[in-house]
Design a protein around this nucleic acid. Structure first.
Lengths: 188, 188
DNA sequence: GTCTATAAAAAGATAGAC
DNA sequence: GTCTATCTTTTTATAGAC
């Protein structure tokens, strides 16, 4: 991989961190410049479309990462709980054990809401379907599996809100522990 | 109640709606002026402290509303599921059946994060304790009841994120239906 | 590819008349 | 209590040198 590509990756990673913490409106060019170490003009060189293009780049990276994790989950040897544990392990890293918020939730607020709504929706559906697939593969009823897919995403998002709001990652960590068996429980 | 007080209430209600949808940074004075029908100067007459004081006023209203709903839940005749159903009924209205986001979640993002962190934390804990109290009163173990309090808040917050992200209130409505019995289930 | 300098627009805030 | 007008600061964006 070229040097430019890796430094671009670094910048996208820094942008992800800013946007997930501050949201679209809170992540000003001044803060972005400070975080990346690039001047404003340099930022526009890399992202001619401004902040919108920066968010796009972050979303592309997020889509790639999500597809990787969901694919990996479906390839894991073992039963459904084992697969979901794999997912939770990966996501715990993504969210730094509950210390970092979710970009998708951050993008649902603010003036950028409408611009990225479709991308956010697609990503949420990707995760719901992935969980549902794990469960139907294990023999669960299709309808219930879809609900459990929603439940899984819901619990993760809610746990992140709780961890941010309480300034305590413990509830997130507990929920991530319980998710595999909770989602696999036969009757609701 | 005086005329000024009711119009103030109306403005606070409009402010709540703006801040929960757009967050602190997205709710600009221009939009606030447009929504309330008040000029910027008039806004500063009512809220000399600017946006911060507006959010404060909204939080005060939210604290009052939360104490009312939680108190009402504890006074309801019936078992724990009945009490939690009462809570869910009230909250479904607050969130317009999943069509409106939560102010607390909105305030966790953006440049205002730190200014209101303590208020948000206190409100989340109020809800967690209220649910836990319902469950311990019904004989549930203290530790489990506290976890279930967290679970309840988590499910509601997650369901709201999901409803906003999927642009579909159905998951929220389903989750609100299931919360009473889910939280009361003896062994997790 | 990065910078300094600068411009243009938007946002926050205030003065003072009515 | 509300307005118009004005001001300051911040934010976004670009031009052009290196």
């Amino acid at each position: 991989m070229s040097k430019q590509a890796t430094s671009k990756q670094t910048h996208v990673s820094e942008l992800l961190d800013l946007f997930r913490r501050l949201g679209y409106d809170g992540a000003t060019l001044a803060k972005i410049s400070q975080t990346t170490g690039l001047g404003k003009a340099s930022l526009y060189h890399h992202f001619p479309g401004g902040k919108d293009e920066m968010v796009e780049a972050v979303l592309v990276a997020l889509e790639h990462g999500s597809e990787q994790i969901t694919a990996e989950m479906l390839q894991v040897q073992g039963d459904a709980p084992a697969r979901l544990r794999k997912m939770c392990d990966r996501l715990s890293k993504v969210y730094d054990n509950g210390q970092k918020p979710c970009l998708l939730a951050a993008l649902l607020s603010g003036s950028a809401k409408d611009a990225f709504r479709d991308r956010v929706e697609k990503l949420l559906q990707l995760w719901i379907r992935a969980i549902a697939t794990v469960l139907t593969t294990a023999g669960m009823d299709e309808t219930l599996a879809c609900q459990r897919g929603e439940d899984g995403v819901m619990m993760i998002q809610g746990a992140l809100i709780l961890a941010q709001g309480l300034q305590d990652p413990a509830p997130f960590q507990r929920v991530m522990q319980q998710i595999p068996e909770t989602l696999c429980r036969p009757l609701q």
